[in-house]
Amino acid sequence: MTTVDAPATTPVVEARAVVVDYHSRGHHTRALDQVSLSVEPGETVGLIGESGSGKSTLARTLLGLVPPTAGEVRYRDRDVYALGATARHRLLGRDTAMVFQDPRSSLNPRLSVGAVVRDPLHVQRIGDREAQRVAVAELLESVGLPAALARRPVRALSGGQLQRVALARALAVEPSLIVADEPTSALDVSVQAQILNLLRQIRSTRNLALLVVSHDMRVIRFLADRTAVMYQGRVVEEGPTEEVYTAPRHDYTKTLLAAAPVLHRG
């Protein structure tokens, strides 16, 4: 995007004309085609698109996990991929976190809840054992779980509780950016409502940048300040969420909006 008025703040993360090609057995697929996107501090950006549109690849590229074929990713104004892999992961691992769709497959079922939440602190060598124990208790309470749950095994928790654990783990390193990839798609309606409310609450109390990846426009509209629509590896439309919803410009956005089921109430 070309911003006419340069924003006063530096974006937390910014993709500039990023191209990602995947190669397999002689085939090559352009997963991202000249994608530019930025997330400002404290802002929630929604990334919407169908499977195969490149939204998850973009999320991973922004987190330093997929080296782009061309273009650059800047994290707090530093070129992420100009750094070596170790330096890159040290920078981003300490300051970003990811929440996945299905906590049952993204969290180790054999660990205790406490161990799962403590893990990033341990890896990043933040605090001693006692400080970590206190931090874990505080983190669990901040996502609405009793601190005593730390001793329970992951497999004993419900899906909604586990997604709260995943959020507590993501918050452990006090990141400036959290990427949530379909954070509520695996959850039931009433549990989804709990997690969506929690995400909004966390965002407003922690001044955290949030990138929400989803195929569900209802979820994006509830959470995001700004929405980017992806189609076939490109960002085809981007703007304030309410504008994208009420006055979509690109045909694909219109198709997406028309396809979403609407509650008919008499």
Partner: peptide, 24 residues
């Protein structure tokens, strides 16, 4: 009524959703 209050909808943008407490 609880299911309806907890659903995110495309038509109306709510500030918060009202979840049903607890789980099945």
């Amino acid at each position: 009524a609880g299911l309806l209050a907890a659903s995110v909808s495309l038509e109306e943008r709510r500030e918060t959703l009202t979840p049903i407490p607890g789980h099945v």
